[in-house]
Computed example of a mutant assay.
Amino acid sequence: MAGHSKWSNIKHRKARVDEKRGRVFTRLGKEIYVAARRGGADPDANPALRTAITRAREVNMPMDNINRNIAKATGELDGVDYEEVNYEGYAAGGVAVLLVTLTDNRNRTAPEIRHLFSRHEGNLGEAGCVAWMFDRRGLLIIPRTGLAMDPEELMLLLIEEGAEDVREEEDTIEVVTAPEELEKIKGILTEHGIKCDSAEVTMVPNSMVPVTDKTTAERILNLLNALEDHDDVQNVYANFDIPDEIIQQLEEA
């Protein structure tokens, strides 16, 4: 779990740069499109769409953009037809990597993803080779700085309200929920004046691969960052456990 949250935090910091480039708008636009196409245009009846819209508003995506993507998904406007394709493989050190992509041309996406794995000393595998190592869960990451209530009281409250697990890390508190309980737990936090760094339905690894070699860690993070930067990649999941001091050294380099 710790490795997953570290990658989530790295992505969260990186997203601040992505926002300036508009990349996050593109990704969230695709997420809104797919959610609306699968579950309908009404956020009240479509939890996936409601979550996607909330995430879009948190990064100040204009409502015109949001509504335009919904209209494309429902056929009211012409638009590109995206399909979800998952890719699985291994990074350096045997770390499992699971990708979720939204693409309008899988014949273009597949070789580009394969090239990125190869370039960073990883291997793209067959479908199913690592998916079994991940479980679909809701994950909320709460910053400890400025927390509006005592951490122990907060943890007890969330467990009583149905969270599957709550644990303290150095700078954050992680809350794991069933996917359908994510919005409920987020609402409880909001009621108590507590904000999250991130709140999403994600794939949580059920086992971790310890990585203590700095060179191997660098190769892993370089691959994950390259995959994150690919236009068709929506989410990247991995089961590394790299010590904080190595991550800090690599971020400062």
Score class of each variant (00 low, 15 high):
Met1Lys: 07
Ala2Pro: 04
Ser5Leu: 15
Trp7Phe: 12
Ile10Ser: 07
Ile10Phe: 10
Lys11Ser: 12
Arg13Ile: 05
Arg13Glu: 11
Ala36Glu: 01
Arg38Val: 10
Gly40Pro: 04
Ala41Tyr: 08
Asp44Thr: 12
Pro47Gly: 05
Thr54Val: 13
Glu58Gln: 12
Pro62Phe: 05
Asn69Arg: 13
Thr74Ala: 09
Gly75Asn: 04
Leu77Cys: 07
Leu77Ala: 09
Gly79Lys: 02
Tyr82Val: 04
Tyr90Lys: 11
Val95Asn: 00
Ala96Tyr: 01
Asn107Phe: 13
Arg108Ala: 11
Thr109Asn: 01
Thr109Ala: 04
Glu112Leu: 14
Arg114Gly: 08
Phe117Asn: 00
Glu121Asn: 11
Glu121Val: 07
Gly128Ala: 02
Ala131Ser: 15
Leu139Trp: 07
Ile142Arg: 01
Pro151Trp: 08
Glu153Phe: 11
Glu153Gln: 13
Ala163Ile: 06
Glu164Ser: 13
Glu168Met: 15
Val175Lys: 01
Glu180Met: 09
Glu180Cys: 04
Glu181Cys: 10
Ile188Glu: 11
Ile194Arg: 03
Ala199Asp: 08
Val201Gly: 03
Asn206Gln: 12
Met208Thr: 11
Pro210Glu: 09
Thr212Glu: 10
Ile220Cys: 00
Leu224Lys: 02
His230Leu: 04
His230Asn: 13
Ala238Tyr: 00
Asp241Leu: 15
Asp241Met: 10
Ile242Cys: 08
Ile246Thr: 09
